[in-house]
């Protein structure tokens, strides 16, 4: 028995192919630009990509600040300051966002390829 695809079959194939393409784009593409953290310290500036989890020890004016990168965001875990405003600031994840330990001279600014925001007001 020979099977010939009917127009309905072709339509079903086309719909499946379109759905696959859409799902692929949804899952793998256009997930927003990769945000980078620019870490300014008294000793210089370094860049941390936020797409790789990790813990970073950053030398500052008073001692070491500890930064954690996870799930596209960065935060101060510890810093040798008194008030710990930096730690309590929590996660920064949006381009334009900023967390800082001013006593230790460590300023973390988030930037994207063309960040949605140049700065976040709070």
């Amino acid at each position: 028995m020979r099977l010939r695809p009917t127009p309905a079959d072709l339509l079903a194939f086309a719909a499946a192919a379109a759905l696959l393409a859409a799902l692929h784009l949804h899952a793998w593409g256009g997930g927003g630009p990769v945000v980078t953290a620019r870490v300014e310290t008294p000793a210089g500036t370094r860049l941390l990509p936020l797409d790789r989890a990790g813990t970073y020890r950053v030398p500052g004016a008073l001692g070491e600040s500890v930064l954690e990168v996870r799930d596209g965001a960065v935060r101060f875990v510890d810093s040798p300051c008194r008030a710990k405003v930096c730690v309590r600031s929590g996660w920064a994840r949006t381009s334009g966002d900023l967390v800082a330990c001013l006593p230790n001279g460590v300023v973390v600014t988030l930037t994207g390829p063309d960040g949605e925001y140049d700065a976040i007001n709070f």
């Binding site: 929590g90 996660w91 949006t94 334009g96 949605e116 925001y117 700065a119 976040i120 007001n121 709070f122």
Partner: peptide
């Protein structure tokens, strides 16, 4: 300049 205003609750 593009400014984002942070949500006061929930980030």
């Amino acid at each position: 300049w593009r400014i984002g205003i942070r949500a006061p609750r929930g980030g």
